[in-house]
Design a protein around this nucleic acid. Structure first.
Length: 421
RNA sequence: CGGAGUGUGGUGUAACGGCUAACAUCCCUGGUUUGGGACCAGGUGACUCCGGGUUCGAAUCCCGGCACUCCGACCA
């Protein structure tokens, strides 16, 4: 993509009423647009990051037999009455609205109810189970206080996977599989080292649920981390009993601030019972399905990545989620200049080879371009100028490093399109 | 939902109750410049969040809204 085509611009200053690091940098760099408190739009660069995160999650969900669907944001009251989660005294984050004829509707806060109801139409026999279904869908939550930029918002995309199994054993087995898939996701996102499988309260059907917590100064949770075992315990549930269950000593734990980027729950038969999701087993008996739900928040993940890796010059994206792999910069403003033409040529070759390149072809001073490049945080910067050509090619520099080096154009192309000639 | 703070051109800031609301940036014109947010000259852009009140006079003081940020509560 040519930077001159981008409608967004970087800015030196941000609105004074944004203080969180993630929102400040993402706004300055033009990745997001703030609509109002707790509601953000994703602009071209930001959307590319979100989509990278989503694609990684999608691949791992497909790897554990997830089938992708898309449920609706508009929800009927009756579906939620079945589990007694409609009433504001039970769930106080609903956005509610109504049809012209007065029928009450709500904007989905999550999707356990509608998906259970939907699946009940398709599941009849033990042969129909197990099944695993997931989606990336917008959730709406009427938070009394949005905070920390994109970390806690009133409207956000969530990946939610639901498992439908015949028995508790089958469900427990899949729960472990989902847990492993999540660990892979965070590893691929570049957050593996600072994300902990965290024990949290389980609810009615299991002793514990699990959260995935990423160490983050701006996070809302406090967790006790056991570095050796690579697990953590949410502060809310830390008791002697939990320590005993997990076979850890209190003195081996260190407290950290963290952000909950994902969670997995065993739901038992609570929803299948309320919404009548049952199947006929081998003996002709009616049985309730066992369920689990598994959430991940791509936007919060994006926020955590910003908070974790950004430096005083701007964003720093891990390769896996960066909006572009390379930031190609031409210093020459004159399009007739040889080095400008060279940059055009390199841009064409790289994009033809399928490399994701952002080409800064704007008529800006070198200093402005470098500052913008640092702010945007693309992992590798490639500068083409008279000087670099005189030295034998292009100058490359990793965003997270101070060192730069000159390599030949051939070498650059070889590195970034290893599968071509 | 409780507490605190803040609302001034697109953005960041300034202005004792008193001149035509100032400065920087952004944007536009022209010229110069060209490897770390360049320079010169000129220009556009604000009912000072909204509604009341006090006063000869309000961006400024008072009251009521609304919005945003922060702390707390809440958080399938």
């Amino acid at each position: 993509m040519r930077q001159s085509h981008l409608f967004t611009k970087t800015r030196k200053e941000v609105p004074s009423d944004e203080t969180s690091k993630n929102a400040t940098l993402l706004l300055r760099a033009g990745y997001i647009h703030k609509e109002f408190s707790g509601v953000y739009a994703y602009l071209p660069l930001g959307l590319r990051v979100i989509n990278k995160i989503i694609e990684i999650i999608r691949e791992e969900m497909n790897n554990i037999e997830g089938q992708e669907i898309s449920l609706t944001a508009l929800q009927e009251k009756s579906t939620w009455d079945a589990t007694d989660r409609w009433d504001d005294s039970k769930v106080d984050v609903w956005f509610k609205t109504a049809l012209k004829n007065g029928t009450e509707l709500g904007l989905a806060i999550t999707h356990e109810e509608p998906i259970t109801k939907m699946m009940s139409q398709y599941v009849r026999s033990f042969r129909d189970l197990p099944k695993y279904v997931y989606q990336f869908q917008t959730k709406f939550r009427n938070e009394t206080r949005a905070k920390s930029g994109i970390m806690r918002t009133r409207e956000f995309i969530m990946k939610d996977l639901y498992s439908f199994c015949k028995t508790k054993e089958e469900q427990d087995h899949y729960y472990k599989k989902a847990q492993d898939a999540y660990i892979k996701v965070f590893k691929r996102l570049g957050l593996g080292d600072i994300t902990y499988l965290t024990f949290a309260s389980g609810g009615i059907f299991s002793k514990y649920s699990h959260e995935f917590q990423t160490i983050c100064e701006n996070g809302e949770d406090e967790i006790y981390v056991h570095h050796k075992k690579k697990i953590a315990i949410n502060k809310e549930v830390l008791t002697d009993e939990v320590l005993k269950d997990l076979d850890v000593k209190r003195e081996d734990l260190s407290i950290e601030k963290a952000s909950e980027v994902g969670n997995i729950f065993s739901l038992g038969t609570r929803f299948s019972e309320a919404l009548n999701l049952s199947y006929t087993d081998e003996n002709g008996e009616k049985q309730l399905a066992w369920m689990g739900s598994y959430g991940l928040g791509p936007a919060r993940i994006m926020g955590v990545i910003v908070e974790s890796f950004a430096d005083d010059k701007g964003l720093v994206w891990p390769e896996a989620v960066a909006p572009f792999s390379l930031h190609l910069i031409t210093i020459a403003k004159d399009k007739e200049n040889d080095s400008y033409k060279k940059a055009e040529e390199i841009y064409k070759k790289l994009t033809d080879a399928g490399v994701e390149v952002l080409f800064d072809d704007r008529e800006e001073s070198a200093g402005a371009k470098f500052a913008d490049s640092d702010l945007l945080g693309i992992p590798m910067r490639v500068v083409v100028s008279d000087k670099s050509i005189a030295l034998g090619g292009v100058e490359i520099k990793e965003r997270k490093s101070d060192k730069s080096e000159i390599i030949s154009v051939e070498e650059l192309l070889k590195t970034y399109k290893p599968n071509c000639e």
